[in-house]
Design a protein around this nucleic acid. Structure first.
Lengths: 230, 230, 230, 230
DNA sequence: GATGAATGAGGATTCATTCAT
DNA sequence: AATGAATGAATCCTCATTCAT
C-alpha cells in the first residue's frame, strides 16, 4: 500500500498529501481552532468535508500529521549538520552551515516556524504527547552541540542559550508579519533574508564567542564602560 | 500579598476591568478565535454573555482593548528606561535596567508576550491598524537606542538586531510552555527566571559588545577562525 | 397633567411625542418585529433603552399608541368630509374632496399606509383588539357613503367596492418603494403625486359611475375604435 | 383531493422543496425578520437548523428562493394570457380570463400576495436586486397590455392605472385578514371569493371602459353631476 | 474514494425587559 | 425623568462529525 501511494504521488500528489499541504498553511496562518475542516476540504478541491475523513480520522489527527511531517524534516535538517566526531570541530563552520541550511529550508516552508510556535502556545496541553515526541530530540541535539560550543557560558545557562538561539532563528520567521507591520518593510524579500542570514551568523557567533564583529567598534561606543568594569 | 491584592481587586475593580483581566489571560492562552465570549463572561461572574456587551461593543473591541492595555504599559516601561540626554550614557546599565524592569513586569503579566506573539500571527491582518498603532512606537524607540548602542553592527542590520533582542526577551516568556515540555523542567520558577535574567543581560551585552563573559573562553574556541575571515 | 404636557409640547415636543414620531416611522419602515426598542431610544436621543419604558409600558404598548395616533387622525379626516345631510349630495365633490384631503395628509404622513398595511398582515392576530377598535369605524363610514354612492353595484359587492377603493388609495402610498423599484421613477415626487391625484379621482369616478372619462373612449377598446378617437 | 396531494407531496418532494413551501407560508405570515430559521426547520421536520443550511446558504438566500419561485409562476401566469397577435383582440375576454387565472392561482397560493407586499415594504432596500429582477418584467408586461387596452386614459397615467389594477387584485388577497377583522366576515370563503371575482371583472371593466354595469344605475345616481361638469 | 444529507453542540450577537440609583 | 448594569431567551450561523450511498 505504501508503494501504491508513492507511485501515484510521483504522477500527481495524492489527495492525502494535498490535504496536508493545505492544512499546513492554514494551520500555520490561523491555528488549530482558527481553521475549519470545511475550508481545508474546499481548498483541496473536495466537494464535501466528509471526504477528508477518509484520509484522517479527525481534525486532530490531521493536525498532528501536519505537525509531524513539518518537524520531522526540520529535525533531520539540523541533525545532518551535527558534527559526528568529537575531535577538533570547526564550530563556526557548523553553525554557519546549519544557519544556511535552516534558512534555506524555512524559506521554502515559511509556515513551519509559526506552526511550531503555535503548537507551543495553543495546544501545549492538548498535543503534549505529539510535541514531546517531535521536539525533544531537536532540543537535545542542540544541547549536545552547545555542551561543547557553549563553553563560555555557565553550564546552567546553556538551556537558556539554546532557547535563545532558537528564538533568534525561528522568531524571525514566525514573526515576519508582525515585523513587517511594525517597520513598514518586507522582512521576507531576498535582501532582508540575506541580511538576516548575515545577522544570524554574526549574532550566534558573538554569543558563542567567535568574535566576528571587529573590536574597534566596541571601543568607539563607550570607552568608559569598560574602565568601570575593570 | 498576591492573594490580598487579587481579593481587593475583585471587590473594587470595575466589571470592565475584571473582564479585561480575564480576557487578557484567555486570549493569551488560546487566541482570539479560541476563546468564547461565553467563557469570559462566565469566569468574570456574569450570569450571561449579554452583560459583557454592555461594556464592549463586540468580541473584537474587547480584544483590542486587551491588546491596548497590555502594550501601552509595555511601551511606558521601555520608554521609562530610555536615556533622555544624548551625552555620555552608560548603555550597559540602561540595558540591564530595562531587562530587569521588563522581566519584573512580564512575570506579573505572563500572558502579554503570548498575546502579542499571537496578535502578530493569527490576527496580523485582522487587527492591522491596532497593531501598527500600538507596536510601531515600541519598535521605533528600540531602534532609537540601538542607533547609538549598536554601533558595532552594520547600519542596515540594526532592525534585525532589534528584532533579535526582542525575540530573545519575549520568545522566552511566550514559549515557556513549549520549553518546559521539551526540557522537562519549569522555565517559570524563580531559579529559571533568575538564570534567564542573567543570561539575557549577558547575551544582549555580547551582542552590543559589552564583553561580560570572560576573554579567556573566547580565545579557547578558535583563534584561527578570525584569520580565515580576514 | 394633560395641561403640563401640552404646555411643554408647545415649547418643544415632549419626549413621549418624540418617541411616537420616531417609532411611527420605524415601525412603518420595518414592522413591529423589525424595529428594536434600542434603535428607537437611540434615535430619540435617549442614552438608554430603559428610559423609554418610563413612557410606555412595553414595546407593544408603544406600537399600539403609534397605531392609535395615526389611525385616529385618519378617521377624523375621512369623517370630516362625509355628508351630514341625507338630501341631495354631490357625491362626486365629496369623493374628490376626500381624495384631496387624504392625499394631502398622506403626503405629510407617508408612513401611515404602510403602518396600517403591516398591522393587517403581521399582527392582525396580536393586535386584533386595537385594530378592530380603530379601523371598524373607518370601514363603516365608508360603507355608509357607498350605500348611496354605490347604487350601481350589486348590494353584496359593496364591501368589495369599499375594499377596492381603499386599496386604490392606500396601496399606492404603501407601495411607492416597490413601484419605484419596478418602474425606475419616483412615485412620490410632486408630478407623480399630481398624476395619482387625477388618476384616483377619475378611477373612483368611473367605479361610481361619474363618467369622468369621455364616452367615446368606451368604444375605443379595439383597434377600430381608436380611429374614431383620432 | 387537496389531502391526497399534500400527502403525496410530503413523501415525494425533496427536502429543498419542503423547505421552500414552509418558508413561503411563514415569510408571508410574518415577514423576513419575523420568521426564525429554527421554526422553519422544525416545521419541515428537520431536527436541527443546521440541516437547512445544507440547502440554502443562509436565511436571505432562502427568502430570495421563495420569492423567485413564487413570482416566477406569477409572471408565467400573466404572460400566458397576454395576447400574442396584435390584430383584433377581445381585451375584455383577456382581462376576465387573466383575472380568473390569477384568482385561481392565488387561492392555491394565498401567501404570495402578502409575500410580495412585504417584500416591497420591509425589504425593498435589502432585496432590491432580486425584486427588480423578478417584478420588473411583470410590470412591463402589464404596461404592454395597457398601452392598448388603456387608451381611454391619458398616456402618462397608464403606470398609475397599472398600479391601481395591481392593487385591486393583490390588495384583496394581501389584506383578507385585515378586512375580515374590520367587517366581521370571512373574505376568503367561497362566496366571498366568487363575489370578488365578479367585482374585479366589473371594476377593471369599468376602468378600461367595458361598461359591464348597466347604464341605468348611472343615470339614477346624480343626473345633475354631469351637467355641472359641462 | 468521494459525496449529499443530516445533526448536536456551540459560536457571536441582539432582543425586550427589569432594577437600583 | 433618565441611566447604567444586568439578564434570560432568542437570533443567525458554523463547527466537527457520522451515515448511507
Amino acid at each position: 500500500m505504501a508503494e501504491s501511494r508513492s507511485v501515484r504521488a510521483a504522477a500527481s500528489k495524492s489527495t492525502r498529501d494535498l490535504i496536508l499541504d493545505v492544512a499546513e498553511r492554514r494551520f500555520a496562518e490561523r491555528g488549530f481552532r482558527g481553521v475549519s475542516v470545511r475550508e481545508i476540504a474546499a481548498e483541496v478541491g473536495l466537494k464535501n468535508q466528509a471526504s477528508l475523513y477518509h484520509h484522517f480520522r479527525n481534525k486532530r489527527a490531521l493536525y498532528e500529521a501536519v505537525l509531524s511531517r513539518g518537524v520531522a524534516t526540520l529535525v533531520e535538517l539540523v541533525a545532518a549538520g551535527a558534527p559526528v566526531e568529537t575531535g577538533r570541530v570547526d564550530y563556526r563552520k557548523v553553525v554557519e552551515d546549519t544557519v544556511d541550511r535552516l534558512i534555506d529550508y524555512l524559506l521554502e516552508h515559511p509556515h513551519l516556524p509559526r506552526l511550531i510556535q503555535r503548537a507551543g502556545m495553543d495546544d501545549a496541553q492538548a498535543f503534549r504527547g505529539t510535541l514531546i515526541r517531535l521536539l525533544r530530540p531537536l532540543f537535545q541535539q542542540g544541547m549536545g552541540v552547545l555542551a561543547v560550543a557553549g563553553v563560555r557560558w555557565p553550564r546552567e545557562e546553556l538551556p537558556h542559550l539554546a532557547a535563545g538561539i532558537y528564538h533568534l532563528i525561528f522568531g524571525y520567521f514566525a514573526n515576519t508579519q508582525l515585523l513587517s507591520l511594525v517597520s513598514e518593510s518586507d522582512w521576507l524579500d531576498a535582501a532582508a533574508v540575506a541580511r538576516q542570514r548575515r545577522f544570524l551568523k554574526a549574532a550566534i557567533g558573538e554569543l558563542l564567542g567567535f568574535r566576528t564583529l571587529g573590536e574597534l567598534r566596541v571601543v568607539s561606543v563607550t570607552p568608559r564602560l569598560r574602565e568601570k568594569r575593570q
